[in-house]
Design a protein around this nucleic acid. Structure first.
Lengths: 206, 206
DNA sequence: GTCTATACCCAGATAGAC
DNA sequence: GTCTATCTGGGTATAGAC
């Protein structure tokens, strides 16, 4: 049974530790100890501490790819129901955030954000540009379908989604890891309430 | 002229360096070099690196105190003009954010937030609780004055202000220090636009 | 109050035996 | 592939002369 996959254990334990204390505040010695291995052995699997971090980001990048099924769903919205719109638009993020490993990696992203341009690009893309674009599209459709009044759809998308991003900053930078499950559940509830609040404000008066 | 206030120079240079690279990534050696002094001399003014950081936070805490004049102004709103409401409500934050030293210290706060409970409390208080409370009060007044439709004023406050906090996270964690001036100017413009967007959505139909 | 010199510790990483 | 042993560098902080 040489099948004790050391390389993967090192990765898992690194994710745990980086998420808890930040990359800089975790030593290779700690990772080694957590992995029940000697420091030097780590270098048989990763050429440096940095490479462990790179591997983690690589993993997440693959995770975040928008599958073609979701893309299709967004394209094919013909329903007239706001709830249906909401479900389709939020499903993608909910799937990603419900995964425990992803959560830890997100925590790492938020911690290291300030001095890592790779992360900056990632966050800008996946937490700002893509979502705002998607929600703008969805709100535009709602307006065309006369579900809500016609206003600046991009500003509406920002109003909706930046609220959520702020909540994520709170969760990952302030509350983590306390009551993570609870905060996350509240997050989804709040986002749905927020959507209702906004669409209520924009109801068509007939 | 023994009036070359070393203690203050050390503090200023520390603020610069911590804001640039984060507390952990700045060494006492660096601070000494930037202050044109030897490492050991720093310990004549501060008993540890940590104490320099404490002094910085102490400074900001004094800065952020709400003066009684502002409090009075908020109490005494009798005007019927939305713009006037907005000015009074946002003046306090604008004053704080226009100061270059405060900006650097805010950057430090955002960087160190994830592992410093002192900062967590500070941010929760000054960037979440107090503002939301203040804006809730202001929106309530607007509703009583029939300037906008009656909706959940606290949710409206969150909708308004969390948008701004998210922008601050972007500015201090992603864009800093590039085009800081520009981003800050845009921030104030965006916040005013956002206010108009929300109040427009809630205009009374007569 | 500032200096030189240094103590002491822990970081990341490597060499080479098994 | 894992170990022991060790290198090198940089970190915070102190002692004691001037």
């Amino acid at each position: 049974m040489t099948k004790r996959n050391t390389k993967e254990i090192i990765l898992k334990k690194s994710i745990d530790l980086f998420a808890e204390k930040g990359y800089d505040n975790v030593s290779v010695r700690e990772i080694a100890k957590a992995s029940s291995i000697k420091e030097s052995s780590i270098y048989n699997h990763y050429k440096s501490k940095q490479q462990i971090l790179d591997t983690i980001f690589e993993y997440l990048s693959k995770e975040m790819v928008v599958d073609t099924q979701t893309e299709q769903e967004i394209e094919n919205i013909v329903t007239k129901d706001i709830t249906e719109f909401y479900k389709i638009g939020s499903q993608y993020y909910e799937n990603k955030l419900r995964d425990p490993t992803n959560l830890k990696i997100f925590r790492i992203l938020f911690i290291e954000l300030y001095h890592n341009s790779q992360i900056k690009n990632f966050i800008q893309k996946f937490l700002i540009e893509i979502p705002i674009q998607g929600w703008t599209q969805l709100f535009s459709q709602m307006m065309e379908n006369n579900l809500i009044r016609k206003v600046d759809s991009e500003h509406l998308a920002n109003t909706y989604f930046k609220y959520g991003v702020e909540l994520l900053f709170e969760i990952f930078l302030i509350y983590y890891p306390e009551d993570l499950e609870t905060h996350l559940n509240n997050f989804f509830i709040k986002m749905e309430n927020h959507m209702h609040f906004l669409t209520d404000c924009l109801l068509i008066n007939e």
